[in-house]
Design a protein around this nucleic acid. Structure first.
Lengths: 205, 205
DNA sequence: TAATAGTACGAACGGTCGTACGATTTCTTT
DNA sequence: AAAGAAATCGTACGACCGTTCGTACTATTA
């Protein structure tokens, strides 16, 4: 930041870089994200771009962080205005599905792509991905617990199990919708989520 | 094949190569599978190994095919002896989860890893992955239809939706179990599968 | 205006990638 | 045992990888 509050030029460039990095990473993975290619896409010099991060790994970590921020922006924040409990669960899952279907990033859900890429490769990148997903799962789990406390979900609900099943539907939609280029899977996921939540209601219809 | 029925030497080598390729691809992806590295692991010359496939893409396609064969061997074949219908559905899904949990390949389910890697990259590899998964989904869908025909599942069952939900649980287990190195997710998946099938029974308990 | 810090550049490094080709070894068949 | 086919090797290639370094330009600060 400058003294009068504007962004430094470098910070603007950095944002541009990460914006493009997210597009590439969502489709080609963090490994396909090469510095030369990224620089070429943005008409920057390789070395100039490199200087912003200092290493490939730092660029990857910055990309993961940017992906987390985008996810919060698109999925979590819009649900803040929804009252806690069941309604918020529905909003969060709904936003998540919308965000993937809207193709904010060409490869769908970045965290899905990256987590599958790094799940079996120990290191700082994998740790960062796992931490991001963990935070998201924590928040969902907490929201489920709230709904139980509020009496909006059955008191014998297993939050961890419900969390697993709800995220399953979205995860599967992420994978198949992109692979088959077929958006009907989002409908399948929405249906499954609705039925599953219906079944967790205190007074079954 | 030789005249006396033995395998040609080259064919044996090819199998050895693909065996190792599956290990690497499951953990590092098809892109991380480099010819030099693969040759080094097997104490072969790069050019000698290369000659078996003629191009990197052909090696990748052969690896996808090998993954498909391994999947059929581990998951589909053992369920052939189970009578068609509900029991076979349970066997297929159960075998699938077992096969991933047993860590036949270090990175879990190869088709999961590879499909996430290539879902947004058009080309022959993606097509091959999609075709393999499609065949598997077709078989599962067909088995579900059989169970409905046999009266083992409710007649108003939507096979496509049931298929989506069952595969969701396994898919999610594949992802999270490896990422967090936590096998309890397989239990979550088994529980979800059991409950979902229970709910599809003609006479709900 | 002079000094300073922030940015970006071009050129070059050692390495690895996929690929090509001819020589050579090893197996299979006659 | 000889001939032929099959398999493997060594070497080389151009392209790209991540990284380093010295330099130039451009803002901000003093």
């Amino acid at each position: 930041m400058t003294t009068d509050g504007r962004l430094l030029r470098g910070e603007q460039t950095r944002r541009l870089i990460l914006e493009r990095a997210l597009d590439i990473a969502s489709a080609e993975g963090l490994e396909g994200l090469s510095i030369g290619r990224l620089a070429g896409d943005l008409s920057l010099s390789k070395s100039g771009l490199f200087a912003h991060f200092g290493s490939k790994e730092e660029l990857q970590l910055a990309t993961v962080e940017a992906a987390r921020e985008a996810f919060v922006e698109q999925v979590v924040k819009p649900a803040r205005s929804v009252e806690p409990g069941l309604a918020r669960i529905e909003a969060l899952i709904g936003n998540w599905l919308d965000y993937v279907e809207r193709r904010v990033f060409p490869g769908g859900c970045i965290l899905y792509s990256i987590s599958a890429e790094y799940d079996a490769r120990p290191g700082r990148v994998r740790d960062a991905v796992a931490a991001s997903l963990d935070a998201w799962r924590d928040y969902l789990r907490h929201t489920i617990r709230e709904a139980v406390s509020l009496g909006e979900l059955r008191s014998d609900t297993d939050p961890e199990q419900l969390l697993f099943e709800l995220t399953s539907y979205v995860w599967q939609a992420c994978g198949t919708a992109v692979l088959y280029d077929d958006d009907t899977f989002f409908g399948r996921a929405r249906e499954a989520v609705a039925v599953r939540l219906q079944r967790a209601l205190p007074r079954p219809a």
